[in-house]
Structures are given as C-alpha cells and as structure tokens.
Design a protein around this nucleic acid. Structure first.
Lengths: 209, 209
DNA sequence: TTTAAAATGTAATAAATGTCACATTGCAGA
DNA sequence: TCTGCAATGTGACATTTATTACATTTTAAA
C-alpha cells in the first residue's frame, strides 16, 4: 500500500487506503493540459496526489473565470456530485503544475459511501468546503469593485502556493478575473505605490497582503 | 403518516417518509421573517413543505445578494452540509410566503444517509443541483452586464413562481442584484420599449421572457 | 547578435454603472 | 375626499471599467 497516500489523506481509514490503492487508477497530467472540459461526461472521481490544478467556469464566448485550485490531498467536488449520475461537467480543469491523480471508478464512489465512514466524511467535507469557497467568490464579484477583487485574488493565490512570490502575468490575472490586462496593470501599479506589492516581470512579490 | 409528504417528496421510500413523520419537527414561518441568519449555528436540516423562501448571501455592509429560492419539495443544501459538523450558516434565509417546514434533528441527517438509500440520493442530488445553480449565478455576475443579469433574474423568478406576472418592486430587484433602483428602472424601461415586459405598479408582466 | 514575441506601461476615450436630486403617480388609510 | 407614503420616472453628473492605440522593456529563439 502506498505510504505517501496516507500522509496526503490522513483521515482515511486503513481499509479505505487499501481500497484506493487496489481499485484507483493512477494518472499523470502534464502542465498546461486541460484535464476536463465543460460539457464532458464525468466518468470517475479524482483525487489529487501532486501538482496543481485550476478550476474554471467557462462562458459561451470563450471567457474563463477562475474559481479555485485543486491541490494534493484534495478531491474534485464536482466529480463527486456528478459521478453518482454521470452528469456532464460544469467546469473546466487546467493543469498548472504537472499533476498525479488517482481516478476512482464511478460505482466505487457510491459504494464506499456506505462502506467507509472516513470516505463519507471526506466527501461531505469536500462538498462543504468547496461550496463555502464558491460562496466567497460570489461575495467578491457581487459586492466588491475590481481593486478589492484583485486583492482577494492575490490572497488566495498566496494561500495556494504558500509563498509571497506569485508567478503570474498581468494577462493571466486579468483573464482569471474576466477583465482586461490594462485594468490589472493599473491596479497593480497603484498597489505598488501603496507598498502592498512589488512588481517584477512575470512575478509579483506580495509585501503586505 | 402524512400523505401530502409523499407527493412533495416522491423519491422517498415509505420507511423514510415514516421516519420523517415520526422524528421531524413541524414548524411554521410567517412571511417576512428571517429563518436563518448568517453566522448562526445550524441545528438541523430543513425540508420545505409549503411557502417560499429566499436565500441570500450577505456582506459586511448590509448588502444582500439573492442566490436562489427554496420551495416545497426541496431542502436547504447548506443546512445539509453544515449539519454534519454543526457549522455556522453562510447564508441568510428570508421567508417570502408563509412557509411550513420539517426540521430534521442533526444526528438523523447523518444516520439516514446509511439507512435510507432514497435519503442518500436526495441529499446528493440536492447538493448537485444547488451547486449547479450557484455556478450559473456566478456566470451571470462574472460574465454579464447588468441588462443580461436582469433578464436572467427575471427568468429565474418566472420559473420559481410559474407565472408571467412577478410581484416585485424595482427596489427589491435592485437589492437582490446589489445595484441601485434607478439602474433597474432604466433597464426595465428599455425592456418595455423592446416589448419584453409590461410594467405596472408593484408588478411586472413578462411578455417574451 | 539580431529579431520576434511576450510582458508591461500609459494615455485618451467610450461605455456602463452608480449617485444625487427631484418630479410624478397611484394607493391606502385618516 | 384628502393626505402622505411608497413606487416609479428622469436628467445631470461622477466614477469605474472597458477599449483602443501605442511605446517600451525583457526574454527567447533564430
């Protein structure tokens, strides 16, 4: 049985870890690839063991709105709710850093809910935390102007990478927030003047964020 | 056992319906009352048997952003995910039309997941459909301007009430969308000129929406 | 080294939305 | 009927965000 798995998913019972090792299918996804497209059928539930994945909501005109990161020790909430009925994906998942995944075949997702208490709790907790995260995203777009949304965005990036140096271009931030690059450049400049960040080419140093 | 209950929740097994009748606590909420405030602890899962409830996201400055309706035959998704760990509510629920509810004590929510397949499926399906609804709300604010957001809003109101005559003031729409009354009045006027709606005092007649 | 592409800076302008001020209208209660 | 309030209409103006059009800088590739 995989030992690293236990460290990534400490709440899982030994039985469950064994079952995952036995039945899960290991996958690798290269940086830049699209793991899941909007409208695609979901065939399994995905656990992330390494790497970093960005989850987007897409609109008809090609817009991509960033919602949250999927990281090691986490599972795709959408793939869990949808898996039960093999629904179409409502989101798009793009790999940022080369990722390794474990695909859990659809019927097991359901079966384990009854058999493994720790799986059940993990699934419920995944729903809850993602739902809450999405609600916070709604707050930021519904209640706040672009300057505050940008700060919120940078804070989340910081949490995700655990560092103060974000490797992001203005363009990438702009499309994540569904605005234009100029707007982001201007706002970042203003933040730099206020001493909140330090701007460099291709990366942003967070000072007081 | 309650017969109307079966009609409202046709997917529930006889056993489950009986359990709900036995253990659920009937409640009534008058129109205008606030059923649940942001930050309040969730003590039980709520099933709606009659009436109409609006679910809002609140911000620190008193803003209220409308997310979705809770109607007969539905359950509060938030109260389901949160119930497991007795978390604080992330939303505010306001009664629009006098409502009757069944409160399911917290421990039963969990217990029934294992005992009643139809409860399990209902809960998962509630998560899924609310998650999807919230994602659509994100679309509307992230990708669309106020005129399209207003149309989307009116469409949802129509679906909710099942009629073409919405009893809403411009002010109520404005605060649901977190904008100002003037903006809504202007946009509605434009829609009326385009023959999409007919405006009356305190109600809006939908023509081509 | 040269060159092309990507990233960033910046200004001018347009468009959308928010805010303010006040008029008008219709309804309910005195 | 009269009166006051809530709902709606409307114009002027401020602010924010989007768009356009370039210049400049940096990096990577030829």
């Amino acid at each position: 049985m995989n030992d690293g798995l236990q460290q990534l998913f400490p709440s899982f019972s030994t039985d469950l870890l064994q079952a995952i090792t036995d039945k899960g299918v290991d996958q690798t996804a290269t940086a830049g690839s699209v793991l899941m497209r909007t409208g695609q059928y979901i065939k399994n539930t995905v656990l992330v063991t390494s790497g970093k994945i960005k989850i987007y909501r897409e609109d008809a005109d090609g817009g991509e709105f960033f919602m949250y990161y999927l990281q090691p020790g986490q599972a795709c909430a959408i793939s869990m709710v949808c898996a039960t009925k093999s629904e179409k994906s409502q989101i798009m998942a793009k790999v940022v850093e080369e990722a390794t995944l474990i695909a859990i075949p659809l019927p097991l997702m359901d079966k384990w809910m009854m058999e493994h208490r720790s799986w059940y709790e993990f699934v419920i907790d995944t729903y809850r935390s993602r739902f809450e995260e999405v609600l916070e995203v709604i707050d930021s777009i519904a209640f706040r102007a672009m300057d505050e949304r940008l700060e919120f965005y940078l804070k989340r990036q910081k949490e995700s990478c655990g560092c103060n140096d974000l490797k992001l271009s203005h363009q990438e931030i702009a499309s994540d927030l569904n605005t234009s690059r100029e707007v982001i450049s201007r706002l970042l400049k203003k933040m730099e003047q206020h001493g909140l960040v330090q701007l460099h080419r291709n990366h942003i140093e967070l000072l007081k964020i």
